[in-house]
Computed example of a mutant assay.
Amino acid sequence: MSLLHPARTGSVVTVWLVNDVPARLVYEGQRYRVTDMPTRLEDEHPEMTHRLNLTGWRFQGTDDAGLSHMFDIRRAGGEWQLIRIYD
């Protein structure tokens, strides 16, 4: 797995939630469906060796052409921000 677009982290993304869990995302004008079970990112996860200092989500998003990425997002103020995107 490799990190994509490291300079674009912090970008605002649009996220649709279903039952408070991400279901869809728009990143750089491209729509993605969440195609796995999103994992909550939490600062106090007991198995982590370092603190992330954030609360957010990690999930796989797949576009209409079938291309998938892993997204890490967090809520900052009233917006969702991209933390990382992996291929």
Rank of each mutant, 00 (worst) to 15 (best):
P38K: 07
M1H: 12
D20F: 07
L67V: 13
L52G: 13
V15I: 15
I83Y: 05
M1T: 14
P38M: 04
R31T: 15
P38L: 05
I73K: 10
V26G: 00
L82S: 09
L3P: 09
H69Q: 11
E44L: 10
G56L: 01
L25F: 06
D36T: 00
V12C: 07
A23C: 14
N53K: 13
D72F: 04
V34F: 01
P38C: 02
M37V: 13
R40Q: 15
R31C: 04
T14A: 13
R33P: 01
R51I: 03
D72L: 15
Y86A: 09
A65R: 12
T55I: 10
L67R: 11
D43G: 01
R74W: 02
M37H: 03
Q81P: 05
D36S: 08
V26P: 00
M48F: 13
R24D: 06
R51F: 08
G66E: 05
R74F: 04
L82C: 09
I85D: 06
S2D: 15
W57D: 01
R40T: 06
T14I: 10
I83H: 11
E44C: 10
V18P: 04
W16N: 14
M37S: 11
T55A: 12
L52A: 02
E79S: 10
G66T: 05
E79Q: 13
Y27F: 14
T35Y: 02
T35L: 04
N53E: 04
W16R: 12
D36M: 00
G56P: 11
I85V: 15
V12A: 09
A7I: 07
T9A: 14
A76M: 09
T55R: 12
M37P: 01
V18S: 13
R51M: 07
D64L: 08
Q60C: 07
N19R: 15
S2C: 05
W16A: 10
L41Q: 09
Y86V: 02
V13D: 00
T9P: 00
R75K: 13
V12Y: 03
G10R: 08
T49C: 02
R51P: 00
E42P: 01
P22T: 10
W57R: 09
G78P: 05
L54K: 13
V26C: 01
M1R: 05
G10W: 09
R40K: 14
R40G: 00
R58S: 14
W16C: 07
L52E: 03
L3G: 12
D64T: 11
N19P: 01
L82Y: 06
R58H: 04
R40L: 12
V13E: 01
R74D: 02
E28T: 04
T39P: 00
T14N: 13
I83W: 07
G61T: 00
E47G: 07
D87L: 08
V13Q: 05
Q81G: 02
R31K: 11
F71C: 04
N53G: 10
T39V: 15
S68W: 11
T39D: 02
H45E: 15
V12S: 12
E42K: 14
D63G: 07
W80R: 10
H45W: 06
T62H: 02
R33W: 07
M48Q: 14
G77C: 10
D87E: 13
T14H: 09
E28R: 13
H69A: 01
G56T: 02
G10F: 08
A23G: 12
V13Y: 01
Y32P: 08
Q60W: 07
E79G: 04
D64I: 14
G56M: 03
L41P: 06
F59E: 00
P38G: 05
W57A: 05
T9E: 10
A76T: 07
R8M: 09
